[in-house]
Design a protein around this nucleic acid. Structure first.
Lengths: 167, 167
DNA sequence: TAGTTTGTCACGTCATTATATGACAAATAT
DNA sequence: ATATTTGTCATATAATGACGTGACAAACTA
């Protein structure tokens, strides 16, 4: 129906959450899941996919977790989206295998391609550093910077970064 | 998976096919189906949907068929797409019913919305008259204007416009 | 130091639901 | 008669999510 998968949206939020943290911070995925309200079973797959795409580093074992493999400024929205949606194509030709009788002569295909390129370019220009700044601006534009944490749990130690900061 | 439905693509092609014909031309849907290689069962629904959207006029019975209800210059790509894809939304908030704790404060949603608007605007600017011209340009850019009709059936009377032109 | 515990990721399977695509048939209008 | 109209059904694919088992590494304990 012309929309990005929920999984992809989740993935973007995972990367964004990691981008918010100080460089090299490592957190258990369950932490991210709680913060971003992602069902654990999905999160497993998302983390695996992000790792195989080289976006994050994973560390098994006790006090393990995930951390960002690159600077937020080095990761584009397009990269993450394509990792999860496959190579972004709004509409390949209706007929499979290039045996479409209209082929490139078809103004409809051309339109789809044009729109496709538009999206791709825009997403390629968008880094997670920008998303971070957008987030800051949004927060700043509200009277009370963080008046109500909006149900975010405070009653427990959210992060337990013992030595992971200077690792 | 982030692509337009086949049905939508078909629909666009139907409108385009009608746009190519002289104003007011009426053809049976089966004719369009053969020309555009659309499975009849799907075409039924597409035609119904196009009619209910006011894009085409239908005429049941003998010598009946469908015809364009507006000038090609008055129909935009967005109108047709939204009729079939619903109101174009790349990603509504993950949580249903607006109870997302992040809401408009979320830079991710903002991005989706931005990309969404980009697509919408572009499609709104694209009329079927433009598609027609694109098609002509494509044809003109080939050495032999219509050298090989590319498997298009010629062995039968493609159109049977008896009196439908001056209707 | 050696062994155990614990909290984490890794991977595979299954169930449920939603959607897309298409065939078919009965009804209706001209 | 010949089209459109409308509704039902079947099938395939994909998305979403739950579970369970195993691998792994750090921390703890004796």
């Amino acid at each position: 129906m012309f929309r990005v998968n929920r999984q992809t949206d989740y993935a973007v939020r995972v990367v964004l959450a990691l981008s918010k943290m100080p460089r090299g911070t490592r957190v258990p995925t369950s932490e991210i899941g709680r913060e971003m309200l992602i069902p654990p079973s999905l999160l497993q797959r998302i983390v695996a996919e992000l790792a195989s795409g080289g976006f994050i580093k994973t560390q098994p074992g006790r006090d393990g977790g995930i951390s960002l493999a690159h600077l937020p400024s080095e990761i584009t929205l397009l990269q993450v989206v394509e990792q999860f949606e496959g190579s972004l194509v709004i509409s390949d030709c209706i007929l499979k295998e290039g045996d479409c009788p209209f082929e490139s002569k078809c103004p409809v295909s051309c339109q789809w391609k044009r729109l496709n390129d538009l999206l791709r370019n825009e997403m390629e220009r968008t880094t997670f550093e920008q998303l971070l700044e957008d987030g800051k601006q949004i927060e700043a534009s509200m009277e009370f910077p963080a008046s109500t944490p909006l149900k975010v749990v405070v009653s427990e130690p959210i992060l337990s970064l013992t030595d992971s900061v200077n690792a």
